[in-house]
Write a protein that binds this DNA or RNA. Structure first.
Length: 831
RNA sequence: GCCCCUGUGGCGGAACCGGUAGACGCGCGCGACUCAAAAUCGCGUUCCGAAAGGAGUGGGGGUUCGAGUCCCUCCAGGGGCACCA
């Protein structure tokens, strides 16, 4: 893309940098005793060489590494700016705590409730953490997605779901015997007449208050805190509740009483940390209701559901007795409330759901849930017991990590002054080199001289914040830094205003949410603090697929790399010791499965151009592709073929830059048309990221060139057309195979570099053919094709079609009722 | 559970706006060159059929002169979110 855009006259910035902080470097340090910095910089050096070998036209003068103090110093400055702007704050929050390794774990690091490394049961701990206030931009981050037209719809959708805007209501339930009310959030206020219990999060202030006087509740809450927050933990955990003895009144009927439970499935950080349970509308609430003998009240019923018979009603009288019937009318299926335990009377063949609570909120008995929700909100607001509200799923971004290899948080903690920012002139707060990884936990925490400091405010001896920032912070603004990587501020406005937003961003789909959302947040926050002038970082986004490879395993389940596999005597695959090996499915390349290929080896064997060509040739780039030896061989053959093609034609060619003759023969014209059609389509294909199609067009032209007899001709026009075709071929493939293209360009007699030439332009008079082939259908079935001059009129087409023998045979005795002619495409005879 | 995407030869994949399904590549088959092999070149390659012809884009149904493409439905695979009230 960079090479193509450059040929199109754009000023292209194509930088490369290293997102280099993170856990793997620390693990390597622990396992091998190498300092994380040493390990990281060695990897960078190796990868830089690999990338250079691929010929990626990267501007290495802009290179940066996030672990370099020159980079993270500016990141610390951004942190302090955000702090000043109220976009960073500190609060206590619940985290997964590994009591053996003395560290916080990400949810992904908790396996079956235990720390992945220590195997110790994980605890829920409340720790002070730094947060970025991403929720300050919830609405903007959501609505601006609509304008990101050059982003894949899939990514925009994933972000929409992640931000998770819900319309709903906050409703206040009076608590019996107390002056305060319990505030809950719901997205379905229209089901309020299906409520049968209230549930509080174990972390809810009311639950905490009650626990102080109720040892049973206190124990229950402690038990909840031992559970992990990981997906597995949630799946396995039974829905448990503790009856607090407290009772709420239904806000619309003070005689209707609802018991208050503390339940382990209610989250404190969504909504208000309290809910009302509607067992008829929610499986989880239903499970809970059954477990604790709570009523189930129907609020929805499908059309066609019949009324219960008296016997059936009797069967549920127990349910009805538990609970006062508010109202029960039966008039043509329009009922206000109906108390039953299950969907016993529901006719499964019914189509539309009917809303039974409508009578309270709406005049019409049938409404969509959305209408009913809005009506319910109006009603609740009118009664003064609730209000419409919007709730986001998105939460603030906790960035504190108890890790060494990351950007230190530039804050000092003073007993008297609290959290005090490190003064700007003292930045960067640099990581110490002399650290000890021999015991678990954060080495910064144990580094007494590093962590001690003087309070910038009162001068007292205090300690530094020993946490480092989540590595996602590092990658949230590097694109801005690329525009002026050595500036002594986070950005240089002149540079950042010239380049941003990024015209074309490329990354894997795995970044669809976290990285891309954080970068969008950072861009807004940086704008607010005056570091740049745009809201959105990436105008165009392309998500490329990964390259996978077959996996190889022997009967013992050991994995082998492709290099270790060969063909045995019986034709089967064998491993290094001659044992039988089976080929498994194609998977994402990974060290554990050993299904990787070494770029250096590929480049040594086939050259960079072959590798580049193969990667672009078969699959659309947004899809996963499989790396195969056969595939790379095929690409290699094409490289050889191109070279030969040029070689064989060289003798016959007129000199470079020769004037075009005035006349061309038929075969020369055919080649010229093919050439200009290829020029036309390859550019468009590259623009649209359809590289596999561009490759196919290039193959087509080269096939024609290989088959042409023009090489043997003495005619000046023939020879000129041959040069035109060959030169065009070289120029079209140049963005994909730059090295070969330059080499051939020189052999074709040119002095300068091809990379400095503009992209070729197609001659529009040569991109269309003089004759076209039309399909002739009889009743929509193809029977023949006819050759006609381009744009021949309908009459001509119809006559030509009806004189085809195969068409006449198909028409037979009947007379055509209608003949449909689509110019230059098709004739359909209807009989 | 909710939301989204994708199903086309032996394989990767083409097919603009509803208009010749299978471009291009891989693989395979046959042939040429060679003592032979490799490389290379030529021809062929959706399936059934000797051919005429018929069938065919996950299954079923619909709209249309005409459907891979639009609509409904079912099936399969993949992805995202998820004690989110």
């Amino acid at each position: 893309i960079a090479r193509y855009k450059r040929a199109r006259g754009f000023n292209v910035l194509h930088p490369m940098g290293w997102d280099a902080f993170g856990l793997p470097a620390e693990n390597a340090a622990m396992e091998r005793g190498i300092h994380p910095a040493e390990w990281t910089y060695a990897n960078i050096a190796a990868m830089r060489e690999q990338l250079k070998g691929m010929g990626l036209s990267i501007d290495w003068s802009k290179e940066l590494a996030t672990c370099h103090p020159g980079y993270y110093a500016q990141q610390q400055r951004l942190f302090l700016d955000f702090l000043g702007a109220g976009l960073v704050y500190r609060k206590e929050s619940w985290v997964n705590w590994d009591p053996v390794d003395q560290t916080v774990l990400a949810n992904e690091q908790v396996i079956e409730g235990r720390g992945w490394r220590s195997g110790a049961p994980v605890e829920q701990r409340r720790l002070p953490q730094w947060f970025f206030r991403i929720t300050a931009y919830s609405e903007e981050l959501l609505s601006a997605l609509d304008e990101l037209e050059r982003w894949p719809e899939k990514v925009r959708l994933m972000q929409r779901n992640w931000i998770g805007k819900s319309r709903g209501a906050r409703i206040w339930f009076p608590i019996d015997g107390r002056s305060d009310a319990l505030e809950i959030f719901t997205t379905r206020p229209d089901t309020i007449d299906g409520a049968s219990f209230m549930a509080l999060s174990p972390h809810h202030p009311l639950a905490q208050e009650l626990a102080a006087k109720d040892p049973g509740l206190s124990d229950f809450i402690a038990e909840c805190e031992h559970l992990g927050t990981s997906e597995e933990a949630i799946e396995r955990t039974e829905k448990l509740g503790y009856d607090t003895g407290l009772v709420c009144s239904h806000p619309l009927d003070s005689n209707w009483k609802l018991p208050v439970y503390v339940a382990n499935f209610v989250l404190m950080d969504y909504g208000t940390g309290a809910i009302f349970g509607v067992p008829s509308g929610d499986q989880r609430d239903l499970d809970f209701a059954r477990k604790y003998g709570l009523p189930v009240i129907e609020t929805y019923r499908p059309v066609g559901a019949r009324d219960p018979s008296p016997q059936e009603l009797e069967a549920y009288e127990d349910q009805l007795r538990r609970h006062p019937v508010v109202e029960h009318r039966s008039a043509e299926g329009r009922e206000l409330l109906f108390h039953i335990s299950e969907s016993a009377f529901i006719d499964k063949s019914a189509e539309e759901p009917v809303h039974y609570t409508n009578a309270r909120f709406l005049d019409e008995p049938i409404a969509t849930p959305i209408e009913a929700i809005e009506a319910a909100i109006d009603y609740l607001e009118h009664q003064g017991v609730g209000e419409g509200t919007v709730q986001f799923r998105l939460r603030d971004w906790g960035v504190s990590r108890q890790r060494y290899w990351g950007c230190p948080i530039p804050v000092i903690h003073c007993a008297d002054c609290g959290a005090v920012p490190v003064p700007l002139e003292e930045l960067p707060v640099q990581l110490p080199d002399d650290v000890d990884f021999s015991s678990p936990g954060n080495p910064l925490e144990r580094h007494e001289s590093w962590k001690s400091a003087d309070c910038p405010s009162c001068g007292k001896a205090v300690r530094r914040d020993t946490d480092t920032m989540d590595t996602f912070v590092d990658s949230s603004w590097y694109f801005a830094r690329f525009t002026a990587p050595r500036a002594d501020a986070p950005t240089r406005r002149e540079a950042v205003d010239y380049w941003l937003p990024v015209d074309q961003y490329i990354g894997g789909i795995e970044h669809a949410i976290l990285h891309l959302l954080y970068a969008r947040f950072f861009t807004r926050a940086m704008k607010q603090c005056g570091h740049l002038g745009v809201e959105e970082p990436f105008k165009g986004l392309f998500t490329q697929g990964m390259i996978g490879h077959e996996t190889y395993q022997d009967s013992a389940g050991r994995y082998f790399s492709p290099d270790e596999i060969s063909r045995g005597d019986n034709g089967g695959l064998v491993g290094p010791d001659g044992q039988a090996v089976t080929a498994g499915r194609v998977e994402k390349m990974s060290k554990s499965k050993k299904n990787t290929v070494d770029p250096a080896r590929i480049i040594d064997t086939y050259g960079a151009d072959t590798a580049r060509w193969f990667m672009l040739s078969d699959s659309p780039p947004d899809r996963e592709m499989e790396w195969t030896d056969a595939g790379i061989e095929g690409a290699w053959r094409f490289v050889q073929r191109l070279w030969r093609l040029a070689d064989e034609a060289l003798e016959a060619l007129p000199p470079a830059g020769a004037e075009a003759p005035s006349a061309f023969g038929a075969e020369a014209m055919e080649l010229r048309r093919a050439t200009h059609k290829a020029i036309q389509s390859v550019g468009g294909d590259i623009e649209q990221f359809r590289f596999n199609r561009a490759v196919a067009r290039i193959y087509e032209l080269s096939n024609l060139l290989g088959a042409t007899s023009l090489v043997k001709s003495d005619d000046a026009g023939d020879r000129w057309a041959l040069r035109e075709a060959l030169e065009s071929l070289v120029r079209l493939m140049a963005p994909m195979m730059p090295h070969l293209a330059e080499e051939l360009w020189q052999r074709l007699g040119h002095d300068g570099m091809l990379v400095d030439l503009p992209w070729p332009e197609a001659d529009q008079t040569l991109t269309v053919d003089e004759t076209v082939t039309l399909a002739v259908q009889v009743n929509g079935k193809k029977r023949a094709t006819i050759e006609l001059p381009r744009d021949a009129d309908e009459k001509t087409a119809e006559q030509a079609a009806l004189s085809e023998p195969a068409v006449l045979r198909a028409v037979g005795e009947s007379t055509p009722r209608k003949v449909i002619v689509v110019k230059n495409r098709i004739v359909n005879v209807v009989v």
